[in-house]
Amino acid sequence: MQGRTGDHACVLQVRDLHVTFKADGESAEALRGMNLDLRQGEIHGLVGESGAGKSVLLHTLLNLNRGASFVRTTGRVLYEERNLLELFEPEIRRIRGAEIAIVFQEPAKHLNPGLTIEEHIRDLLRYHLGVTRRPAGARTAELLELVELPLRVLRQYAFELSGGMQQRAMIALAIACNPRVLLADEPTTALDVTVQRQILELLLRLRAELGLSVLFVSHDLAVVREVADRVSVLYGGKLIENAENSALFDRALHPYTELLLRSVPSAAMRGRALNVIPGTVPDATAVPPGCAFHPRCPIAAERCAIELPELRAHHEDHSVACFFPGQLVEPAGRQG
């Protein structure tokens, strides 16, 4: 299911991104120097547990951070040689939802219950592309065909559709203006496995047909393993490991990644205790100094509590932010 990009042209680059919120009077840094490259045409899996910064990153990419608790963003989000964080609202609005589109976990929450699917698509086309009534009709039918929905869906409301069909409608909206980048925020988490499979296959097909670059955010390692070309692991508001799919899943270098992979239950693990990472994920108001993972890390040394390991290329195309990459010992009896 995986394809590889020939060149390494990037459509989206995140550089030294810091995002700060205020929680109960305390300042909480949700992203603490995030760097990320989204390459042209790839599906980039972004995994992490709650509080790792997945959602904040997506919001920041679309410049959507606001509200009373939001304090500031620093750093750069580069798209077509422009820093999205410096754009004025009218400019970012032309990009958001058109060139950079997003698909959410619960489509029903993001579709207007008072509008039919056709009205959603028509409004979007009119807003972004200024398309008038008649040409919009042709494009609408084309979009439905792309996401494999019957034409009758056009006259239906979100609540009349199943979860899988709602997600297809959401995807149709996302690709309506020919985006270059698709942000997918846990797009299959709320779906049953058979429907999940269909949506994943749809995303893979659209990537191939439309040349989309997809940032695929999920807490589900197995799903990411199935669809992603590259995978980045987030922990405590930082990117701690980044590699091509099989390199990450077969030869993880960061102790957190490796332990996380070992903690997933499966038939192959029957009769053996699951690996456990002690403690809990750090709260953004109290991220440990040094490497954020050091209090839970079995191979942490003194320096891990003091120095912050930077993300470095360990070998070609595989980066890790750890002073002791790949040094976690294999548990007995794992091979074979």
Binding site: E49, L259, L260, S263, V264, P265, L274, V276, T280, V281
Partner: peptide
């Protein structure tokens, strides 16, 4: 629950 927490609870139940 988060993946790493799931493993803790499953081991506890076992």
């Amino acid at each position: 629950l988060d993946v790493s927490i799931q493993a803790q609870i499953i081991n506890l139940l076992m």
